[in-house]
Design a protein around this nucleic acid. Structure first.
Lengths: 322, 322
DNA sequence: TTTTTATGTGTAACCGGTTACACACATTGT
DNA sequence: ACAATGTGTGTAACCGGTTACACATAAAAA
């Protein structure tokens, strides 16, 4: 691998001149530039980005921290982040934390030492100060980490309201909500939106915890639907949860949507693959990821960002289950 | 951020001694070691991994190149790769290529310049020489890149045979195969396995291309099932493809499994969420990813590897669609 | 006693870039 | 004619580690 010194020698100029040509910075004469370009081509020279990183303290990498890429909500997010990163010349380091404090800390350590330029976070096991102490550009995606950290979320509360309204409009008179993990903001918001609307319409309801997990949702639904067969409408906290509910309904011989209506949340591809296809509150997942990535890069490049808080609208998608 | 020179000064030793303590290499007296350790703690010093990388030409990163993380086969693979990488102290750079030569080349360039220690490839748009020319440890995962590159695949041919046998045992007398993209080895292998068994049993069959894509599968199935309603068994090239076929069957009012039996391939979580749950040929996806990661790291660390070709068995999982 | 060998430490070069600074020369302004 | 400014280039320090090599001392071997 040729170095900048090889190029300088070959072009009969100094390394400074080569560097100036490479970075289009400072004065370089036409002749010198041509000689350098020729030498570069001749030696098939490519600047070593590690050496650059060392001096510039900037690696052109961004960290993407997710709880678990296996959760079908995250691949699309990751894809969006990566697509945008690529067009701006950044690469993405993937970190699965399983929401474990230890792993998250370990990754932060590693990322910082590698001079990553910024981090997109979809987890929040650490405290706000921990994030501040990192002294790195950060974007909070699908989580809220504090006022001084740019944030991209869906309007979970409003989406949940729409879902619940929809069930009621469709004639449901006894609702259930299979909520996500307590303490995880989007799950809490969806719960609150559901509660608001149900109470406003004076509709009786049950709430059970399903942790956004299909098996948990299925067993919880089995139990709930057996004990409370009057339930005729379910707002699942996520599409995966909804799939679990539908499985249970199927084994209990509840017909969907006649006897039981189900609506999910997320809008992941899974929903449209189910039979009947799942009605859901669609989040603009790709858009969230792309926006976060752009926000992070703007921060990194010290460009102004328009807002600190992006609250993307959700969309009611009516399919077969309602 | 403290540097090694700060530590040296604080501990009243030379940088060489500090480095020796850090790397547990060479002779260091008890007293010196203690002084260094104390200084490190005092200054909260962490060695800069970029500087290390520059000298050692090794970054502790591995590249994971996938066509599209959004394809439900890959998240689990990525997760496995990352889990193993983490335990060995490596980080993973995620690269989506969409099977596009240009992107793949661009990434290789970038990865090499960042001194990644190796690459796991699940794509193969480039030629064998291109990979050789990289001069980097490589593992081929779910693809075959050449004899001198360690390879981890499922036994696709055998799995396809089992799937087809299973359909026939279940009484199917007119089969269809919705194959994946031509030229992609796993898809070709599955097709060949299917063909072998169908012909051996003298069962008539149709083959259509579905590119592992749900919408393509659905429209192809719509057409095929309308024109050839005698078909009573479908071997889909992937679970996603199977989901498409099932959707089409549903709209055409083919009852599954009575009128039409369907079996997929992959064993992704989606399968068990469908109604009826999808019979499939399960690959050990996580195991494949973990094994690849371990193989790559062994190569990187110049440890011997047991075999160049790992052919993992598949497993017939009988669920509701057959 | 003298020579080896093991132990311990520091200096400075090196990895491969970037850039501050010094310097030379050509224009332009007054 | 002389200063001020613009253009072009090279040397060497710097980013923050690692390590070859030189050197010193102590213990073991001859």
């Amino acid at each position: 691998m040729a170095t900048i010194r090889d190029v300088a020698k070959q072009a009969k100029v100094s390394v400074a001149t080569v560097s100036r040509v490479l970075n289009k910075k400072g004065y370089v004469s036409k002749e010198a530039e041509e000689a350098v370009l020729k030498a570069i081509k001749m030696l098939d020279y490519r600047p070593n980005s590690v050496a650059r990183t060392l001096y510039n303290k900037s690696s052109g990498m961004i960290g993407l921290v997710v709880p678990d890429i296996t959760n079908p909500f995250f691949p699309e997010l990751a894809r969006a982040v990566e697509d945008v990163a690529l067009t701006y010349g950044y690469t993405v380091v993937l970190c699965n934390t399983d929401e474990m404090v230890e792993k998250e800390k370990k990754y932060f350590e590693a990322l910082k030492q590698k001079y990553v330029d910024g981090i997109i976070l979809t987890t929040s096991s650490l405290s706000t100060e921990d994030y501040d102490r990192l002294e790195l550009p950060i974007v909070a995606l699908d989580r809220e980490l504090g006022d001084n950290i740019p944030t991209v979320v869906s309007n979970n509360r409003q989406g949940a309201r729409e879902a619940t309204e929809h069930l009621i409009h469709r004639g449901c008179r006894y609702l259930a909500h299979f909520r996500g993990p307590v303490g995880v903001a989007p799950a809490d918001e969806r719960y609150l939106g559901f509660k608001e609307v149900a109470e406003q319409h004076e509709i009786p309801y049950k709430v059970v915890n399903a942790d956004f997990h299909i098996d948990k949702a299925e067993s919880a639904a089995n139990e709930l639907l057996t004990n409370t067969p009057l339930i005729d409408g379910v707002f699942a906290g996520s599409d995966v949860t909804a799939a679990g509910v539908m499985k249970a309904a199927h084994t209990l011989n509840f017909s969907i949507p006649d006897q039981l209506k189900v609506i999910g949340f997320d809008g992941i591809p899974l929903g449209s693959m189910l039979v009947p296809p799942l009605s859901t509150i669609e989040q603009s997942i790709y858009k969230m990821g792309a926006l976060s990535s752009r926000l992070l890069i703007k921060q990194i490049e010290k460009k102004p960002i328009d807002a600190m808080y992006y609250d993307l609208p959700t969309k009611l998608v009516i399919r077969g289950t309602t």
